[in-house]
Design a protein around this nucleic acid. Structure first.
Lengths: 170, 170
DNA sequence: GTAGCACGCTTCGAATTCGAAGCAAGTAGA
DNA sequence: TCTACTTGCTTCGAATTCGAAGCGTGCTAC
């Protein structure tokens, strides 16, 4: 069904803009986090999610579901954060398999230290340029896209043409 | 969380939607590229930029400017692509310092092999959900944001505080 | 012409990512 | 209870990223 209809110019522009903005924003944010609080982007996300949860603790799986990282990367970062004293890890009481991650006071404090700068960067880079209508528009549009992405099957089916990938990357 | 002039709910939603969509799209695309043509995202970007340039060749610096990677990562990926026979590298004639990267026929072919699938994925994930108006809207909005981001100084310029008082995560 | 600085790219070591494989705990069916 | 499957997390090795340092080349002032 999808003919090789190339993306038209409008679409290409939208696609590139999306990718570029995402990357630039991410870079700027990571820079700020590192300078202000010695946190990496992933680490900040973990702490932020914990802070946002009712009791300041979540299972590893719950954490992973919200993030885009692999399980193993999460394990790695959790270990880093634990070493830094920002979180603790303990087996869940009701299920020995699960690991419950808890935000320590130190973790909460660190988060408080970087939040103002974080907000400032996002404000300056992203929202200073945008009107409320703009914000509403992209929230609506990207929200729909996100739901769609979470729904659509991961396309394990190869495309019809030139199956084979006959030359691995070497 | 604290109330230190936080982003309001609208802004937060927009911010998260942006980050999430960017990440999901990137992951999906990388998956497809690897399956269809054994290319990584960065590699694809390099080839695509070369293909889009008038003569199929660019200096390393020109390449780097368009991408978000560090110089060293670009060098690494260029070496990979050269080994795979998809590009060549040669010193520039007019400036011995510069390296000119050229797309080989093989590189062009490889690009042709992955493009249909690439387009399909982007179509399915991103544009099937969007109307033309949506597309125009995000192109306009994100285009403005991108220009802004490329312009605004990296924030170390204005507040020159904390020359050495920064504490790494340890 | 030559010293000094700027530029373009590469090399280096450390950190972080991923997927696959491994291990322990839970669950269901006999 | 025993066996097999599922689930949750960690470990492992390879690949990729980054910034700092290194090395030629080009430019400018003297």
């Amino acid at each position: 069904m999808t003919d090789a209809t190339p993306l038209d110019a409008e679409q290409l522009a939208a696609y590139f803009a999306l990718k570029e903005v995402g990357s630039l924003l991410e870079h700027a944010v990571e820079q700020q986090l590192r300078v202000d609080g010695g946190l990496s982007g992933p680490q900040f996300q973990i702490l932020a999610r914990l802070a946002g949860s009712p009791r300041g603790h979540l299972r590893m799986t719950d954490l992973a579901d919200g993030l885009v990282y692999s399980r193993s990367a999460l394990t790695y970062q959790a270990a880093q954060l634990e070493n830094a004293g920002l979180i603790t890890r303990a087996p869940a009481e009701d299920d020995e398999r699960s690991t419950v991650v808890t935000l320590t006071p130190g973790g909460r404090e660190r988060l408080g230290k970087v939040m103002p700068g974080h907000i400032e960067v996002v404000q300056r880079l992203l929202f200073d340029t945008l009107t409320r209508d703009d914000i509403a528009a992209i929230t609506d549009i990207l929200g729909r896209v996100r739901d769609r992405m979470r729904t659509v099957p991961p396309r394990s089916a190869a495309p019809r043409r030139s199956t084979g990938a006959r030359k691995p990357a070497d």
